[in-house]
Design a protein around this nucleic acid. Structure first.
Length: 594
RNA sequence: GGUUCAGUAGCUCAGUUGGAUAGAGCAACAGCCUUCUAAGCUGUGGGUCUCGGGUUCGAAUCCCGACUGAAUCACCA
């Protein structure tokens, strides 16, 4: 039973005894005692002031007098309406022992339910940029966090591998590529394709300008530029299964996948099941046809198919174009159907930017209308955009921060710092590179995950991401320090388990650490409930801060008292365990030394 | 224009269901390495929590109204 639960029931009993009322759970308000007062946990007594008909401070004192009768409350003091409770050291030591005994501390019981988490979902016409990085890191971390909350999680990716944007890259490559391949150019496949996507846009704009110079208006020029017509022609051929177009498409996509795989691997994200739009859009079409037959949707005179959502307070939504081709929504319906055929999904989560909130609102209603039981409950985990100092990132305008470049830069910076801080004669190249990789990526991941996912965040490329302060490397460093101590303890055969039962006055720094460790399970739950890795970041940072302060003030291995030494070692080991676990849920690796 | 979200220190961000004198980091300044890793620790300065009302013992937090910014409302994805 947690401290909060114990105090809650004690407080209820006290209120009953003193004022003869049964307090509701939400009337028992507990918070951590502020550092300027003595105590570990504080009961806010304002809720009882009225029914006691006494001054707040007096009520607090009366309840305190009751509570101190129990074993776990050693002392109390009342400040206005705040009753500060000092918890007995024996309680904390027992808690630490329980934490130590639990190898999976923080893991919540199995819920026997399956959650599918969709994230990443790239287009295959350009490489990943910082916006995708946020998506991938959030998606992966949320999956890990929900696993820790007892869900069985299936991570999935829907690859948008077809459509006009893909044809643009293909066409530009055919026209201007001279048969360039990743092998011949030494470029990563996704970057190669991205270059041709940009090339298409450049040539297309030139054609538009040319047509406009001849007197054509902009709208018409955009529509009639030869490159655009050719791209559309290519899309029709693709849909008609033209062998040449399909072969080219398959070849170029395979280059992109090879590039993506490399980026994903480096980022440390993975998927259990990958869906491709080229395989799901037909399924979507047939679902829409079914909906049309059942009267859920209607067809207009021009042949296009629509859903009327005005009763739901929304607009009308197009589902099939007049030429019969599908749109984004159609594809998402098909993908949803296939997924629920493949897995017994209890909860479906889409990690997609907040710019698509409307889309998912509509999707939820449509799925529900088509008779899918999961429609109403789908979760759109809507996260904010990454902005640059001068606004949004735009692929075609070249104002993107490339994912591969950014990771390179972070690892380079980490390596430089590592070489600067360590004795170069005592390390191997491999060790240096491995630490630099973990630390560079740790800095990047923490930087992104520590901000509330719902909010837009700003990234300034001119200012490099920090390695000091509230950062991933700070937490990694704390961990590495502990590992160093544990290695030394092992070498000296120092036990972290004292021979005699520990019962002594805890140092405030020790106590603060234990109390922080006790908070971990509820933090994991909160992160899961709120879909927020940021909550875990804040926790890991606070724990690392507490430890560094403890480490600075108190000696572990040089402590002469064997009992104290053992307890501090036990404490350090468990801080390391929880730090590693928490960071693991964020997808951040922890180096043994740095 | 409708809808949704956001506005906290110079900058980037925390702030659990309303609780005590609103917190970190960066940047600036001043200290601490013969002692378990100084990517650390300690201290100083820095605030009209966008603004105005309201609710109450008590509001950065809840309600209403402004202002500012973002997203969205496509036969784009």
């Amino acid at each position: 039973m947690t401290l909060e639960q114990q105090i809650t029931s004690l407080a209820k009993a006290a209120v009953k005894a003193l004022y003869d009322v049964d307090a509701a759970d939400n009337q028992i308000q507990l918070q951590k005692t502020r550092p300027e007062f003595e105590g570990n946990i504080t009961l806010v007594v304002f809720p009882f002031v009225k029914l006691a008909r006494k001054a707040p401070a007096q009520v607090a004192a009366e309840i305190g007098k009751e509570l101190v009768k129990s074993d776990i409350v050693a002392k109390y003091n009342a400040v206005q309406g705040f009753l500060n409770l000092v918890i007995d050291d024996a309680f904390w030591i027992k808690q630490l022992e329980a934490i130590d005994a639990d190898a999976n501390y923080g893991q919540q019981p199995d819920r026997h339910q399956l959650m599918m988490v969709e994230y990443s979902s790239p287009n295959t016409n350009k490489p990943l940029h910082l916006g995708h990085v946020r998506n991938n890191l959030l998606g992966y971390s949320i999956a890990r966090i929900q696993e820790a909350n007892g869900w069985k999680v299936v991570k999935t990716n829907i690859v948008n591998d077809r459509g006009i944007h893909i044809c643009k890259s293909m066409l530009a490559w055919l026209k201007f590529g001279n048969g360039e391949t990743p092998e011949s150019s030494g470029k990563k496949g996704d970057h190669l394709i991205g270059d041709y996507y940009v090339r298409f846009d450049k040539e297309y704009k030139a054609q538009i300008a040319e047509l406009m110079a001849k007197g054509m208006d902009e709208e018409t020029a955009k529509r009639e530029a030869p490159l655009m017509l050719e791209a559309q022609d290519m899309l029709r051929k693709w849909e008609a299964n033209d062998p040449e177009v399909r072969a080219l498409w398959a070849k170029m996509n395979s280059w992109v996948y090879a590039g993506f795989d490399e980026t994903y691997k480096r980022m440390g994200v993975s998927f259990d099941k990958i869906y491709y739009e080229s395989n799901t859009y037909l399924e979507g079409k047939s679902e829409v046809e079914k909906g049309l037959a059942s009267g859920a949707f209607y067809r207009r005179e021009d042949g296009s198919v629509w859903a009327d959502l005005t009763k739901d307070g929304l607009d009308e939504k197009l589902l099939l174009r007049s030429d019969g081709t599908s749109v984004y929504m159609t594809q998402d319906i098909g993908t949803a159907k296939l997924r629920f055929q493949d897995y017994p999904i209890d909860k479906m989560v889409y990690v997609v930017g907040n710019e698509q909130e409307y889309h998912f609102k509509v999707l939820s209603i449509l799925l529900d209308r088509l008779g899918f039981p999961f429609g109403k409950e789908l979760v759109h985990f809507s996260y904010g955009m990454v902005e640059l100092p001068n606004g949004k990132m735009k692929s075609r305008e070249g104002t993107v921060v490339d994912a591969d470049d950014l990771m390179d830069k972070m690892v380079e910076d980490a390596k430089e710092i590592y070489l600067q801080k360590n004795d170069q004669s005592s390390m191997s190249n491999n060790q240096c590179d491995e630490v630099a990789r973990m630390v560079g990526l740790g800095a990047l991941k923490y930087f992104i995950l520590k901000v509330d996912p719902r909010k837009n965040m700003l990234f300034n490329p001119a200012e490099s991401i920090d390695f000091n302060g509230n950062t991933g490397p700070f937490i990694q460093y704390t961990f590495a320090r502990i590992q160093s101590v544990l290695r030394k303890a092992e070498a000296d055969s120092v036990s972290r388990y004292p021979d005699i039962p520990v019962s002594r006055d805890l140092d405030p720094k020790e106590l603060a650490l234990i109390q922080r460790l006790c908070d971990y399970p509820s933090t994991v739950r909160a992160a899961g409930d709120e879909f927020s890795p940021a909550i875990l970041c804040n926790y890991a940072y606070a724990l690392a801060c507490d430890f560094n302060s403890f480490y600075h003030d108190l000696s572990i291995l040089n402590e002469p008292d064997a009992q104290k030494k053992a307890l501090r070692l036990l404490l350090a080991a468990n801080v390391a365990k929880v730090l590693k676990n928490a960071m693991g849920l964020l997808g951040i690796e922890m180096p043994e030394r740095m």
